[in-house]
Every structure is written in C-alpha cells, then in structure tokens.
Amino acid sequence: MSLLTVTALSKSFGERRLLSIDTLALDSGQSYVLTGENGSGKSTLLRILAGLEAPDRGCGRYGERPFDWHPYPGWLRRQIIYVHQHPYLFHTSVAENIAYGLRARGVDRGERERLVAAAIAWARLAHLLGTPPQKLSGGERQRVALARAWVLAPQVLLLDEPTANLDAESRLQTIDLLRGFVAAQTTAVIACHDRDVIELPDMQRLQVVDRQIRLAPEPRCG
C-alpha cells in the first residue's frame, strides 16, 4: 500500500522540461535514496513533494486522500517535512529551533520541553545548547535540522543531500542519525550521492533519468 503517490507530474523552467513523471509511489515506512546527475531535478522533485514549489501539472494522493498544489493542503504539510541541503537555522537558540515545529502545532509547554530534550539527546546536541545557531559548523547545523525534523515524527521525511559538503567526522555523525530515521517507521526520501547513505540497509534506490523516475537496480554514484 503506497502512502504518497504522484501521477502525471511535470515541471518546466522556461523552455526546459525538468521533470515528467508518470507515477511515483512511495510505500509507507520505506526509505528511498534518490540519485541522479546534478541538475537532473532531484531537489525540485523533493521541493514539489514538500509543497515548496508547484508543478506545472500533476495530481497527488496521500493514503486515500487526493490533493493538488493549488494550494498545497495544510494537513499534508503536517505529515511531510523537508530539510534543505544547507539547512537554515532561525536566529534564536538551538533549543528554540528544535521546538519551532512543535510550537506551530500548538504542543503545550511541558510536552514540548520533553520532546525537545529527547531530540537533543537523539542528535547528541547537548554540548551545543549555549551556542548561537549562526556559530555552528555545517555538520552541527545539519544535526540541529535533523533533530528539528525528528521531533515532529513526520510520516514522510524529504532530505536534500544531507551529507554533502560535510567533513568526514560530521558526515559519519549525520549518517548515524539517518540510520535512525531509516530504521523508524518514517517514509524517507534522501537525495544523495553518498555511497554510505545509498548502502544503508533496506534502502530502495530511485533514480532521476531523462526526466523520469526509475527504480535503480544498482547503486549509482554521481
């Protein structure tokens, strides 16, 4: 049973047709790695699924419920979380960043503090709590962003190149967190060129080739 299905989806920028997908079906609880050459439309596809961009055409179904992008429904935003390749942290504090989505969902204070503490422990961020978010390194930012997504227990998680441009140590820590997400009952799509992410257990491989989505039999690295 697929959780999220999009059909007849197309997206062009100017004259250039970037995506033209007949069907993309994501199964509940399954993790996918999305590969494809630079500029092949991986990021755009994730942004469309997250409702940050609208396709030119296309329809979607979430479980039994149909949806489209005009406008992208609020109830779907609560299910799907997208994390930028270079995540943006609000100029508040690490803890406030993690609490942001919980506040938006009206989670009361006690519960919020409990969940934020759990997320901080999960992403091993305790030593960074006093550091202004703008002073964090790329890897630390990525972990705060993952904790900010994790705390919301999303049904669908969309990650854009989470290990790109990280030093070796940060990369390993990030992959460790991704392993946790993949093992959980979250449907995850990770746009990635990183072989260690691609080879995480139980990962299905999707590939953007010629504007289409294919199931890739072999790991492909860009």
């Binding site: 997250a50 409702g51 940050l52 609020g74 935003r77 609560r78 979380i81 997208y82 994390v83 930028h84 270079h86 995540p87 943006y88 609000f90 942001y100 989505g101 506040r103 938006a104 969902r105 900010r148 919301l152």
Partner: peptide, 15 residues
C-alpha cells in the same frame, strides 16, 4: 530559506 523552513515546519501564515 527562512520562509521555506517556517513553511516546511508547518507554521501558519501569522507565525
């Protein structure tokens, strides 16, 4: 990305 992050985390229009 600031606005996109707020949107992606489910913030309402006033938030």
């Amino acid at each position: 990305r600031a606005r996109e992050t707020a949107v992606a985390l489910g913030a309402s229009v006033p938030r």
